[in-house]
Structures are given as structure tokens and as C-alpha cells.
Amino acid sequence: MELEVRHLRALCAIADTGSLHKAARQLGMSQPSLTTQLRRIEYAVGGQLFARERTGCRPTPLGRTVLSRARPLVVEMRALITEARAVAARAADGAPQLRIGSTASRAIPGWLRRLRHRMPEADTSLQMDVSANALLQMVAAGQLDIAFVHEVEGSPLRLPEGLRQRVLVEREPQFVSLAADHPAARKPVVHLTDLASDRWMVDPTVDGEWDGLQRVLREAGLSPRVLHGDYLTAATLVATGEVVTVCQPTSAARPDMAVRPLYGDPLGVRLLVAARTDAELDAVYGELESAYWEAAAEAPSYQDWLLGTRGTAPPPCPTLDRIPTPVPPIEQAPAPARLPRLATGRVPPPDLGPAAAQDLRPTPL
């Protein structure tokens, strides 16, 4: 017997109601049928999932393990059905669609806000994924229109044939996130040796990140214990001092968590956006560029890094009503694109002069 979504839904209903009788009513089936189905499920997984007690049904340790995996799948399936129905309804209405895929980025909220402002008639959807390669494949297959992804240094992405790409940032340094009371948090720049006794956490499902962190730690002569987990869990453990983790420079610091650059910028990523045509890139790139630098202006540690790189202010981050037209793509930009590359290999952001620096005071979080 292979478990199906309906079986997982039944397990969740039993756990939520604590009763086979109530779960059967919720599922619209008879109690004997649900009991038979539960026995088959237990036979398939090889153990008892619920302890039948006088007061009802209680998950066994095996049951709790299965439920921890079943619940997200049931929720995702519900969301999939709801979204599919909504997409079908909108398609029937003939509204233009803009399907965006992205890996995690603080620029996304500002990007979507700007796109809604400029293209209010478009039905814009967003799909997040930890795998940049998966998103690029979806663009090539026509399932997405645009993908905004990051490429970890040393782990090139597999760009499908025929896709057009535009680089937003050639090399974005990756910072470190650590507890606010960590001794290294008192420093403006953290050396990897300052974290020699710490445990690290990394999400191994993010393309290239585990390999990148391994390389950086190995080159520093460190072999700390590394935990695997998603970055939402990592943020919680960082705040309590359990782990440290690599993070994006635009990450927001919190009262219980600090974000600092790593000495020498040992790990970097390339930020790029991909589509099937140049016209699709032109339609969204300006808003993305503005949104990215807006997010950068809200990250004091990143601003300090940028100022240290150029000795001048990063580009201004205008509010929405100050963006009449999209910003020209990088390859069409005038002077900034021809600025000399720094010895570190960074490509500095455009310098718009001292007046722009006045617009870059950190925005309160």
C-alpha cells in the first residue's frame, strides 16, 4: 500500500480531533471505514500510529514522527489546489500574468510593491524555492516568467539553453549572523577564528551553500560541528547562542541577533535575474534594482561595508513615488558600469555623489 494525500489527511484529522468517531464525521466517512483505513496505514508504515484509550486516540512516538511530515504535505496540497483554482479563474478572465520565482531575498517585498505600482493590471504571482537551479528550469519550461536567484561562489548554476540573464550584483559578500551577546558581535568585522568554538548551521538544500561553507571553513583551518536545518530554525538558534550562520548582507539585525561582515569576505554570491527574452527582463529589472538598494539602505552593516569599499555612499534608495521609470539595465548604464574593478573583485555600486548620501540614513527597523 502506498500512502496518498487522503491517508495523510485522515491521520491529521484523527490527531486533531482525538477521536476516530469525530475524525470520521469531519472526513465524511463512517467510523468503521476510517478504522479499517487506519489499520492499513499502520500496516504500511510498520507500526502503531495511535494508542486507543478510553478517552480517545493519542499519537504514539511513531505517530508523532509521521504527523510531523504529514501536516506540511497536507497544507501544501490544500494551498496547491487553492492556488490552481485561482490561477484558472484569473486565466479565464484574461488578466495578464507575471509569474516570478525567487530564492530568499530582502529585496522581494519592495520589488513586488514597485511592480504592482507600475503594472497594476498584471496578476503577479510569486514562487519561493531554495533551489536556484529548479527555478531556472521552471523558467525554461514556461512555468515561470522570471527567476531572481543567487549563485554561490564556486558552485556555478546550470543555466538552461536559451535563457537570457542579467547580473544584478556581481559579487555580494555573505555576512555572519550571531547572537547579540556573542563576544565577536562587539567587533565591526568578524574573523572566522573568532567563531572557532561555535557550531554552524546551514541549509544543505540551498544550491551550493553547504559546499561554499565547507570550503570557507576548510581554508580557514577550521572544522567546527555543522548542523543542518532551514534558515528560519537557524535564526531562532542564532538568537539563543546555539549556532552561528552565514547570512545575506541585507539581513535585518534584531535586538537578540547581530549581523556582521566576515574579514576578507571569504564567501560571495552572484545575484542574477533570468527570463526567456530580453523584453521580459526589461519589464522587471529596474524595479528589482531599486528594491535591492532600498533593502541595502536598511542594513547598517551592509552600508558600512559599502562605504568602506568605495569611501563614498552607495546609490540612493528613492521612495516609490520618486521612480518614474525603470532604472536602465547594468549593461546600458553609463559611467558606473565602467568604474574600475576593485582588487578584491567586487563591483562597486554606482556613486551618485555626496547629495545622495543624505538619503541613506538607516531606516529604523
Rank of each mutant, 00 (worst) to 15 (best):
E2K: 14
E2M: 12
E2Q: 12
L3Q: 07
L3E: 07
V5R: 05
A10M: 07
L11S: 01
A13L: 09
A15I: 02
G18E: 11
G18L: 10
S19T: 05
L20M: 12
H21W: 09
K22C: 04
A23S: 05
Q26L: 12
L27K: 08
G28H: 13
Q31D: 13
L34W: 06
L34E: 04
L34K: 05
T35Y: 08
Q48H: 12
F50E: 04
E53C: 08
R54W: 03
T55C: 06
R58P: 01
G63A: 10
P72V: 00
I81H: 10
I81L: 11
T82R: 15
E83I: 14
E83V: 15
V87R: 11
A89Y: 03
D93Q: 15
A95S: 13
L98S: 05
I100R: 04
G101Y: 00
G101W: 02
S102M: 08
S102Y: 01
A107Y: 01
I108G: 02
P109G: 04
R114T: 00
R116C: 04
R118T: 12
T124L: 15
S125F: 07
N133M: 07
V139G: 00
A140D: 06
A147V: 14
V149F: 04
L168F: 01
L168V: 12
Q174I: 11
F175W: 10
L178K: 01
L178G: 01
V189K: 02
V190L: 02
V190T: 06
D194M: 01
D194V: 03
D194Y: 00
A196Q: 11
S197Q: 13
P204I: 07
P204S: 12
V206D: 03
V206R: 14
E209K: 11
D211C: 10
R215F: 07
R218M: 09
R225W: 15
A234K: 01
L237W: 10
V238C: 08
V246Y: 00
V246K: 00
Q248P: 00
T250D: 12
S251H: 10
A252E: 13
R254S: 03
R254V: 03
D256L: 11
P261A: 11
G264R: 02
G264D: 05
D265V: 04
P266M: 15
P266F: 14
P266E: 14
P266W: 08
R270W: 02
R270Q: 06
L272Q: 03
R276H: 13
Y285S: 01
L288M: 14
E289Q: 10
W293G: 03
A299G: 10
P300A: 14
L307C: 08
A313M: 11
P315G: 12
I323H: 05
P324L: 11
V327A: 05
P328S: 08
R338P: 06
L339W: 07
G345T: 08
G345F: 12
P349D: 03
D351S: 13
L352E: 09
A355N: 09
A357E: 07
L360N: 15
R361P: 01
R361Q: 15
P362W: 07
T363P: 00
P364S: 09
